[in-house]
């Protein structure tokens, strides 16, 4: 019998990395300076590599001749379970950094929890591999938060604007979907509340040092984890999938 719940948990994990990886890839050739252009595309490479490892595992559990390419190329919008923040358009470098920072703080502690505590050996191994890479992502985004937040008047106001817009997307990671509840109960991932506590403390410290303000938010946006997305995901998928949709099974 197929382990559909575990597959769903794996997709929720991998989709976050795939969609953000795709967004960061859009910066290729458009970065503010060469070094950051390269940094963002290197992070994209790490994230897509992580997604690939997780999709391979999901495909093995799924059987039916499915492979890692099935998930990015042939699923419909409602079958993607990434958090909404990650599909948010690049906008400018400030938005890109705030988006990265909010994700990295979650990603870092989530991977740490899985590599230390997961009952599934494969999940542990993938998490341990990516954790090393993500610790550099977090260092990168934290440094830029501080550098631009505590930079010039203009960089500060751009960063604050990005914070004001993106903060309400930053909590969905910690809001438990039915899949999360199941995964915690099954011991695949440790309690999200604890991950939230650690991530939140880290965020506060960096934001304070960056001289930025946490905006007042009446509610937090969510829905991605159950497949309800913003209009932006459709644009990503149409670009990512058009080749496979037009020429099914095309390979290099």
């Amino acid at each position: 019998m197929k382990d559909t719940k575990k597959i769903r948990f794996l997709l929720q994990w991998a989709d976050n990395s795939l969609i953000l990886g795709h967004r960061l890839g859009e910066w290729c050739g458009h970065g503010p300076v060469l070094e950051q252009d390269i940094a963002m595309t290197n992070i994209a490479l790490d994230l897509i590599g992580e997604a690939r490892n997780v999709y391979q595992y999901a495909a093995e559990l799924e059987g039916d001749g499915k492979d890692e390419d099935y998930y990015p190329y042939l699923r419909k919008e409602r079958q993607f379970y990434n958090a909404l923040l990650l599909e948010y358009k690049n906008t400018d470098f400030a938005y890109t950094i705030v988006r990265q920072f909010l994700f990295d703080t979650f990603h870092y502690y989530a991977l740490l929890s899985m590599m230390d505590n997961s009952v599934d050996g494969r999940v542990k191994a993938i998490a341990a591999k990516s954790f090393k890479e993500v610790s550099y992502h977090l260092e990168f985004s934290s440094d830029w938060m501080k550098r631009l937040g505590d930079g010039t008047e203009e960089s500060h106001s751009k960063m604050q604007e990005a914070m004001d817009h993106l903060w309400e997307y930053g909590h969905e990671f910690f809001m438990k979907s039915p899949t999360d509840e199941w995964a915690i109960e099954s011991g695949l991932i440790y309690d999200l509340d604890l991950i939230y506590k650690k991530a939140s403390n880290f965020r506060k410290e960096v934001i304070k040092e960056a001289t930025l303000e946490i905006p007042e938010t009446p509610y937090f946006k969510s829905g991605g984890k159950i497949g309800i997305h913003t209009e932006q995901l459709g644009f990503i998928l149409s670009e990512m999938q058009y080749m496979q949709r037009t020429y099914p099974g095309a390979t290099w």
Binding site: E35, N42, L45
Partner: peptide, 13 residues
């Protein structure tokens, strides 16, 4: 340190 990521993901600049 100039950049956390150099010519490849495994290197810094």
């Amino acid at each position: 340190l100039i950049s956390h990521f150099g010519s490849t993901a495994c290197k810094a600049f």
